[in-house]
Computed example of a mutant assay.
Amino acid sequence: MLAGRREGVGNAMVASLGIVTPFCSCSAIPLFIGLVSAGVPLGVTFSFLIAAPMVNEVALGLLLAMLGWKIALTYLAFGLAIAIGAGWIIGKLRLEGWLEPWVLKIQAGTAEIPAASVTWPDRVHAGTEAVREIVGRIWYWIIAGIAVGALIHGYAPEELLASIMGEDVWWSVPAAVLTGVPMYSNAAGIIPVVEALIGKGAALGTVLAFMMSVTTLSLPEMVILRKVLSMKLIVVFASVVTIGILAVGFLFNLVFA
């Protein structure tokens, strides 16, 4: 379904799929690889990779309970805008050649057999082989990424973070985004930190930009993505998403000032 859609429609569809899939960034990456390998456009798969950890039902439910429906709904709208917009931009750049060669090889193999002639046993066999190949190539990167996250999981110097995010200066939002990159958590794990920071007087938009950075631009995610993407493509992905997160942080601070 996704492979047959125009990029704009595909981006919106897969970003909406991300809302109902409670994956963190590390667990979304194997599915990201599967989508790319199946021939789904690269920009569309990036929309899923962004939306799944950032705008899932767990994050929205907790935001609704802790901060109210207005903030939860606004976060949903901005998060989807980042996922759809960033994926669309990456798709328009036509950067498929910046995938790692082994991913391109799997992707090329998907066109060998017409879909109409594939039986269910063929599909099961192909799926089993794809799982074996993908897991065999990235399992140690996933463990490395989780290990990096484990080293800093639960470590959030709230007083220091609140002092940075409570500053009424332009650089507080960029500082919050940069602070979130080395940390790792899923949405459920970071929202209690968000609530604590807001309780200490941190600006709402700045804190939510921090949350988006932790869930979407974390160092463990980049470690795993390096097995799939070239450094050039990782830089493009991180840059486009960072611009979107910064815009959301500034807009939130403006709207909820």
Rank of each mutant, 00 (worst) to 15 (best):
R137V: 07
L93Q: 04
P220D: 12
L219A: 06
I82M: 05
L104R: 13
V214S: 06
V207N: 10
Y140W: 12
V118W: 00
I164E: 08
E112I: 13
V169R: 15
G97S: 13
A83I: 10
I142Q: 07
P220L: 12
E112K: 10
L197Q: 02
G79M: 11
T179E: 13
F210D: 05
L95K: 11
S172K: 06
L178W: 12
A147L: 08
L217Y: 08
L93S: 04
R132K: 14
H153M: 11
G97W: 03
G109N: 08
G109Y: 04
I82N: 09
G85N: 05
A188F: 02
P114F: 08
A86F: 04
E221Q: 15
Y140D: 11
I142D: 03
E167G: 10
L151M: 13
V131A: 13
T215W: 07
V193D: 04
R132E: 13
V193L: 07
H153S: 14
W120G: 03
P114K: 00
A175Q: 10
A202I: 12
I134Q: 05
R123C: 09
I90G: 03
G87T: 02
G154E: 04
F78V: 04
L217P: 00
E159C: 06
E195H: 14
G180F: 12
L93M: 15
E100F: 09
P220Q: 07
W88Y: 14
K200S: 09
K105V: 07
I84Q: 11
V169D: 09
L104V: 06
L80C: 07
E221A: 15
W102V: 06
L151K: 10
W171R: 13
G189A: 14
I198E: 02
A144L: 14
V118Q: 12
E167F: 04
E167T: 10
A202T: 09
M222G: 05
S218C: 08
W139F: 08
A86V: 08
H125K: 07
E133K: 10
R94P: 00
E100H: 12
A81S: 15
T215H: 07
V131S: 06
D168M: 10
A188W: 10
A162G: 14
P101W: 13
I152Y: 13
W98S: 05
N186L: 01
H125I: 03
I164H: 02
G109C: 01
E158W: 02
E133R: 09
R132T: 10
L208Y: 07
S163Y: 10
V214G: 04
T119M: 07
T119P: 03
W171P: 14
Y155P: 00
A203D: 11
